[in-house]
Computed example of a mutant assay.
Amino acid sequence: MLIGVPAEVKNRETRVALTPEGAARLTKAGHDVVIQAGAGAASFLTDEAYVAAGARLGTVDEAWAADLVLKVKEPVPEEYDRLSANILFTFLHLAANEPLARALIAAGTTAISYDTVQLDDGTLPLLTPMSEIAGRLATLEGAHHLLSPSGGRGVLLGGVGDLPGARVVVIGAGVAGRAALAEAVALGADAVVLDLDESRLAAARHAHGERVRTELSTPASVAREVAAADLVIGAVLVPGRPAPTVVSHAMVEGMRPGSVLVDIAIDQGGCFEDSRPTTHDDPVFRVAGSTLYCVANMPGAVGATATEALAHATAPYVDALAAHGRDALATDSALARGLNVDAGTLRCRAVAQALAHLPSAPELAAAS
């Protein structure tokens, strides 16, 4: 099979979908791998390393024309004309991106999304490493924007001496929320985590003991904690669906001046009412005296780390698609759940419910 890896074009996206090690694995298996020249440069992966691994360098057109196209982030509008009836394997987040859904439907693309590949136990093996990175970065970015030169309250996240650290409120105790919480606790913040699932809160107490306080997430508890927070991190995820709004504009208006909010769920539409996607070049905006950070590709800030983590996670699925094409979906239930678009229809139930006016078909059944 011909496998193409185009360069990412999203703002400051430094990741690449395949490492030289991955290229060597695929070419050894008899596949032809074409890498757009310079695709790995931002992750410090050289063209020479890919060539040494058996791949060949090509143009953007050659990479997109492959049987299987591997990307990191969703195609942006300037790439829609490159979509075709091949297999695309990447993050899509379609529930919050109707224009892309329409473009994939029109092109007849078999589009498989990393963020909906799901194991039988409900875990998301390809989203998990990126969520962990985004969670850790959320705390670090929040700490940075709390500094006075960044327009923040001038609060040191971990405090100093007998002075307490900043009040950090994490909403959502999934993978990203747990990572954000761990980073906040490690830095010495006064940390609070809220979730709807008591078992997740119990796990947080077990992991951090008295260094963290837990609360069941309700509109009242969220409002109370947000009002007292220096930093709020939104980490609410419903796989394949738009993120629910958990922090209203009125809550932000009630926060102390110079507070910071970081929305990790922005790829799925965001979990703050005021959220809108931002970029690494222009990451924040102000709302009622607070700073909102809503960068839609946070792991791109650590491309070298994130590329290795993502490539390791995707490897078995890439190998299966390279060996069997679309037939790989019929024998892998996790990969089948990742199918978002096929033959001009939506094939993921959650995405189809979010975009109910677009053509859809039942989810693909596959062996467990």
Rank of each mutant, 00 (worst) to 15 (best):
residue 12 R to E: 15
residue 15 R to S: 12
residue 18 L to W: 05
residue 23 A to T: 04
residue 26 L to E: 09
residue 27 T to L: 01
residue 27 T to E: 02
residue 32 D to Y: 05
residue 33 V to W: 08
residue 41 A to V: 12
residue 43 S to L: 10
residue 59 T to W: 08
residue 61 D to K: 11
residue 62 E to R: 03
residue 63 A to L: 03
residue 63 A to N: 08
residue 65 A to F: 05
residue 65 A to P: 05
residue 71 K to C: 06
residue 72 V to Q: 13
residue 73 K to Y: 10
residue 77 P to F: 06
residue 83 L to V: 04
residue 84 S to A: 11
residue 87 I to F: 07
residue 89 F to P: 09
residue 101 A to L: 01
residue 103 A to C: 02
residue 108 G to W: 08
residue 110 T to E: 06
residue 126 L to G: 02
residue 134 A to K: 07
residue 137 L to W: 07
residue 137 L to C: 06
residue 138 A to S: 03
residue 140 L to T: 02
residue 147 L to S: 13
residue 147 L to H: 06
residue 152 G to S: 05
residue 156 L to K: 00
residue 157 L to P: 02
residue 162 D to G: 12
residue 167 R to N: 05
residue 170 V to M: 01
residue 171 I to W: 02
residue 173 A to W: 05
residue 176 A to P: 06
residue 176 A to D: 07
residue 188 G to A: 00
residue 188 G to D: 00
residue 191 A to L: 01
residue 195 D to W: 12
residue 195 D to G: 11
residue 199 S to I: 12
residue 200 R to I: 09
residue 200 R to A: 11
residue 205 R to F: 08
residue 205 R to N: 14
residue 207 A to G: 13
residue 209 G to S: 14
residue 212 V to M: 08
residue 216 L to S: 15
residue 222 V to E: 05
residue 225 E to M: 01
residue 226 V to C: 00
residue 228 A to R: 06
residue 239 P to T: 12
residue 239 P to G: 09
residue 244 P to L: 04
residue 246 V to D: 03
residue 254 G to V: 01
residue 262 V to M: 04
residue 263 D to C: 00
residue 263 D to L: 00
residue 264 I to N: 05
residue 264 I to P: 02
residue 266 I to A: 02
residue 271 C to R: 04
residue 275 S to E: 03
residue 280 H to A: 15
residue 284 V to N: 10
residue 285 F to I: 09
residue 285 F to N: 06
residue 298 M to R: 09
residue 298 M to I: 14
residue 309 A to T: 01
residue 317 Y to H: 13
residue 318 V to N: 02
residue 321 L to M: 07
residue 323 A to N: 14
residue 324 H to I: 04
residue 342 D to Y: 08
residue 350 A to G: 10
residue 355 L to F: 05
residue 358 L to N: 12
residue 363 E to F: 10
residue 364 L to C: 10
residue 367 A to I: 13
